[in-house]
């Protein structure tokens, strides 16, 4: 019996060999089916890119006419006067909205970062297996609550609570929105932060403990430095979530164009402005177009945050 010539290394990858030497070759249909499947999967991947660019293109197209014809950029960025529907004195200043967004987000992060990272450290390092499972389910449940429900809680629970605790006339303000945003971004931080801590090899923990370090010293001196990139990414993704959130802040922050002087002042955010006004602006009008320019601004902010998070995570991979 003549043996078939041995495959020359490098001419054909071994994994493509078709069955046993004596078995039948793969049918043409199977080969075709596989290449079709490969193309479908490739299309799915490409479509994600297409959608992102498509959305960006659409938002840009709606706003670009006014961006380059008529809108005063100085007024847009540095004026706090937002009178888009005024007949005699039209003003498109979004400074107050930007400050509104960042004040709510900033305060939310001040609350959420210590809580989120603390919870991630507790879940990953200090709690027993049974507790961990229960807590993780609860945390994921927290992430699944729709934002309109959070807004409802902001109005019906937090509002009177803030009025009573801080003796302020209105409970719909920066603090209210920030608390809600904090609760909404904590689950993201916990689950990504926990993953980052779990990715630290156990040998580090063992080495540290074997040198007489306590558990807390191990966390602070070994695990946090080792996982810092992943933890930073967790924080930034939480920030991205908070900046983009609309419904809860629309309902809970009081929705007043205002530069806040304290956490108890009402504000309005960029997202809430779009949500509240887009339905009433006539299509193609300057007001309509300026709302899309706000959309571009938001897009840029979240894109920047995600990009930084991405670069930071890449940093982890490089180690």
């Amino acid at each position: 019996m003549n043996l078939p010539p041995a495959p020359v290394a490098g001419t054909r990858p071994l994994s493509v060999s078709t069955g046993s030497p004596r078995g039948p070759r793969r049918s043409r249909a199977a080969v075709l089916g596989e290449s079709v499947l490969e193309w479908v999967i490739r299309l799915c991947g490409i479509s994600a890119i297409l959608f992102v660019f498509g959305i960006f293109f659409f938002v840009l197209r709606e706003g670009v006419g006014f961006l380059f014809g008529g809108l005063k950029l100085g007024e847009f960025f540095f004026s706090t006067e937002w009178y888009p529907t005024s007949l005699s004195n039209v003003r498109y200043g979004v400074l107050a909205l930007i400050v509104g967004t960042f004040s709510v987000t900033g305060l939310a992060m001040l609350i959420a970062v210590p809580f989120g990272l603390g919870a991630a450290i507790f879940v990953s390092e200090f709690c027993s297996d049974r507790w961990r499972e229960g807590l993780k389910i609860l945390i994921e449940l927290l992430a699944a609550i729709p934002s309109v429900v959070w807004g409802f809680i902001g109005i019906s629970v937090m509002n009177p609570l803030i009025q009573e605790v801080f003796h302020v006339p209105v409970g719909l303000n920066v603090l209210n929105g920030a608390l809600l945003l904090a609760l909404m971004s904590v689950p993201i931080m916990v689950s990504i932060g926990e993953d980052a801590l779990k990715a630290v090899p156990d040998s580090f923990r063992e080495a540290s403990l074997a040198m007489g370090a306590t558990r807390w010293q191990t966390v602070r001196r070994v695990l946090l430095p080792a996982a810092k990139n992943g933890l930073l990414a967790a924080i930034l993704l939480g920030v991205g979530r908070a900046v983009g959130e609309t419904m809860a802040v629309l309902m809970a922050t009081g929705h007043a164009v205002n530069i806040p002087k304290s956490p108890f002042d009402p504000v309005r955010t960029l997202t809430a402005t779009i949500a509240a006004e887009l339905g009433e602006a006539s299509v193609g009008s300057p007001h309509y177009q300026v709302l899309f320019i706000i959309g571009i601004l938001l897009f840029t902010i979240t894109f920047a945050v995600n990009l930084v998070a991405d670069l930071v995570v890449k940093g982890t991979a490089k180690g």
Partner: peptide, 27 residues
Amino acid sequence: RRVGMVAPLPVGLPLSIFDNVAFAPRA
């Protein structure tokens, strides 16, 4: 601290050389 332990595969903590050695005294 009284019983030092050296593991089979070297575990360099993700710290500088100095901080690796200074880890236990600092702790």
